[in-house]
Design a binder for these strands. Structure first.
Lengths: 207, 207, 207, 207
DNA sequence: CATGAATGAGTGTTCATTCAT
DNA sequence: TATGAATGAACACTCATTCAT
């Protein structure tokens, strides 16, 4: 079988796929931000993480802010894609629990995502453009929670009197707050404990 | 006759109260951090906010990190003091609700505190010393929640079967998460809405 | 049948005329320099102007300085060629006026040449190799002025007492100075005004 | 006698005169530009020339462009001041000759000024802000020439029929053009020769 | 004690150059 | 031959820190 020339590390043809390279660097940037924080993230560190020299970034991005914003958005896209696959065919409280659990730092990958997100929360407080991105993302996520709650009501699992919008907001606040606590103190808030706390919070819905 | 040493511009050695001066500068630092974020906070901006030249900081602190850490701790002390006064003689769910509401960004002062806190969450993820401060503070706060929950159980307001530790953790997560959301999108999460959401969350305890 | 080697994208070795390609790129470089100045001229901009990728330059030049020097010399050659055609069969003051007028930025092409020249004046002050080029070129031009002045004397149009060398230098200084002024402030120094000023300057010769 | 503490190099009081320091650095910048050209002028070279570290510039200027523009304007101011002193009480052709001669690179100081000016001509072709500065300065200078020509007419030294505006423009073009030639080829255009050429040009006015 | 001038390391960014394809 | 990806040095600029006054 002929080897696929598009595989990484091969003697690549002179033309590289820009989107691929961009994704590579953006992933490296996300790693660095999650590891050392936004403040300590330098373009040199990103380039080194990606295995390139600092100059490469110039070919694929419009400066550092561009890279960082793309790193945030790539993280969001990754989460969305994971959820899309994971939640296919599921609905109501089942889907809701899965989605919320997926947003907790219960494993290294999700911890990394949470750490990244927290960094950008801080920055977005002083950056209107970033604020808009966060507000939109947050709204999308909350909308999904509301949808699943409505399904639960339709399925008769939840009382029709439930204030869906308020409960959705509270669940989102709970999950994001628990993410912070678990990110700051992972030894105490184990994956198992996080799941238990989530279930307890969801149990509060039956009223 | 005693000379008024507090007058400015004298040639004689000034007798200043170090703690007072430190507190002044630390308060200025907290203001700046809350306003522009940790990344954009410069020692010159802090000095200017306090009404001094940048060099003064050298006399009272061991560098920028020292100032910032003290700013965080001063914010914590301020909150504790406010709660001490506010909660005197109160107990159970009444005290719990008051304490949690005090921790939400429902007015400019509390919004400023929330903004400051979020900045330090981000930084503490990459700074072990800061992590310890945050874990301790967080534990103290959670301990207070647990105490009030125990009182509620003792008063018969809450069922004895309630898992106090878990509920305390969840309430803290909820409050911190809501703080972030309200800080990022204050237009949507008004003070009134925050209070309603808090009451709804507390209502979930009655089970 | 002979294959058309000039078609793009062929796998076979391309037969290109090096001198033609060089001339193409050099012309592009001259355009860029005239438009944005030497400081802002990048090899990528030159390549883009010529319709090639930046790497091509490597095949035809010994670095950026080589391209720029050739651009200057190409501009000089272009002017010489234009004059050769334009002045064929003319002599004395008639030829002199035509030559000097040709050196003023009275139309877009000549303005471009003037702008290019001014850029290189600046650079030649700090680059001995460039200085030599400029001194030689300047000398050639001044020699032509002197030749036409001699012809004018021979034709009895100019007094034999005229100091040809001095007048030639002054006319050249005048033309170059006016070129700068017209290049910097083209709105004020219109083509028409430049011609009038030149004629006035030439009128000063009748003494 | 008590030493004046404001003298340079002394153990200066903690307060330095900002204007003095600025002038110092601007003078250093002008030197560097005149010596190596605008392109090769770095802030580090300017700082080194002034005897400071690169960071000082931050205290006194709004970036490199600010320094360079001030260097140009300082050169202009220096020339104006020198002329003001030199031309006091003089008028007509006498003042005119003195002013024009002062603008030729007849000594190291004036050569330096000419070299600086030529650098900025080049840059102003691509920098509208700089163009405005140059056009204004050029206009002021030409206005002075016109004034002296008018005086010469009033004094009966020059024919009333003289087109003052045109002659002023031509004299300015001549002086600037000769400045370039002398700056590029100082060995050929000695101070003595420049003066002779200027006198010859001025002689052309008598018509 | 307070000042603010000065330092210099570190940053993001630009870009001529190289070279595998 | 032509490409454009990759390099890495050089740059302007920021800023915490130091310290003479």
């Amino acid at each position: 079988m002929a080897p696929t020339a598009s595989e990484k590390g091969q003697g690549m043809p002179k033309i590289v796929n820009h989107d691929t390279r961009r994704a590579e660097i953006v992933a490296a940037a996300a790693q660095v931000v999650a590891r050392v924080g936004l403040e300590a993230t330098t373009v040199r560190a990103i380039a080194a993480e990606a295995g390139y020299s600092s100059g490469v970034l110039d070919h694929y991005f419009h400066g550092k802010d561009d890279i960082l914003l793309q790193a945030l958005q790539a993280s969001h896209r990754g989460i969305h894609e994971r959820l899309r696959v994971q939640l296919r065919g599921r609905r109501g409280l089942d889907a809701l629990r899965a989605m919320l659990l997926d947003n907790l730092p219960v494993d290294p990958q999700r911890l990394s995502e949470a750490r990244l997100e927290i960094q950008f929360w801080a920055r977005s407080l002083a950056d209107p453009a970033l604020t808009r991105v966060q507000v939109r993302e947050s709204g999308t996520f909350r909308g999904a929670i509301e949808r699943y709650l409505h399904e639960a009501v339709a399925d008769g699992v939840l009382a029709a009197a439930v204030n869906v919008k308020a409960e959705a907001q509270n669940l989102q606040a709970f999950v994001d707050g628990l993410s912070v606590h678990a990110a700051v103190d992972p030894a105490r808030l184990t994956a198992r404990l996080q799941a238990q706390l989530l279930d307890r919070e969801l149990a509060g819905l039956d009223r």
